[in-house]
């Protein structure tokens, strides 16, 4: 059973400098959240912080423990392993069984014995996204998930996200493409961290 992911007054750092401050939102089961904002605003940093890859500078994240499946810019595929082997590996890591749902959702059945280095960029991306289904984690965190996908695959992806949310999951994604999903949009621009006004360098040199 998924809890509500609650982010309150989060400050994220990149390169030792706060770039987003006081980010707050709730993510309920079934909900989709779209992160918007110009390049460099900190969408990736926010997602990485939520996924626990980066320490948070201030604020609080609740309900993220063991709930998140993260998909970053790279797919984490091993080029000498086949599609099936790649997915099975992640299934075993997450202690789940069955990669069939992932193969079906992204139309990878015919490719499953193909080695990952023989796949096109779009096919690799589909394999990377299929991993999300394999993890059985309720909250998907997606960083530019539609890069190098064709229209058809984008539709497949939207269907997969919709199905995931219909079964009680939720998703946060940073994307500029309109997927035709019922989603809330969070514009990160207002959360941009302001440069400290005074000249006082405190302990952390911020």
């Amino acid at each position: 059973m998924q809890m509500v992911l609650r982010v309150s007054n989060l400050t994220c750092m990149r390169g030792g400098i706060p770039i987003l401050a006081n980010v707050s939102f709730d993510l309920h089961p079934g909900q989709i959240l779209m992160l918007r904002g110009p390049n460099g605003i900190g969408k990736t940093t926010l997602l990485r912080t939520l996924a626990g890859l980066q320490p948070l500078h201030a604020g609080d994240i609740q309900g993220a423990e063991d709930q998140i499946a993260y998909a970053g810019h790279s797919d984490g595929l091993k080029s000498t392993l086949t599609v099936q082997e790649n997915l099975l590996f992640w299934a075993r890591i997450y202690g789940t069984s069955g990669i069939q749902a992932g193969l079906d959702a992204f139309d990878l059945m015919d490719l499953q014995d193909r080695k990952a280095h023989d796949l096109s960029a779009g096919q690799k991306r589909r394999l990377g996204l299929a991993r999300l289904l394999v993890t059985h984690r309720p909250i998907w965190m997606l960083d530019e998930p539609t890069v190098s996908l064709d229209t058809n695959s984008v539709a497949q992806f939207a269907t997969a996200v919709r199905a995931h949310c219909a079964s009680g999951g939720s998703a946060i994604m940073a994307t500029h493409i309109d997927l035709g999903l019922e989603a809330e949009t969070v514009d990160l621009t207002p959360f941009k961290a302001l440069a400290p006004i005074d000249d006082a360098f405190d302990e952390a040199f911020l």
Partner: peptide, 14 residues
């Protein structure tokens, strides 16, 4: 590290 699997492993339940 290069292909991103280390990031994914770091977020895995191990």
């Amino acid at each position: 590290y290069e292909d991103g699997s280390l990031d994914l492993l770091a977020t895995a339940p191990i």
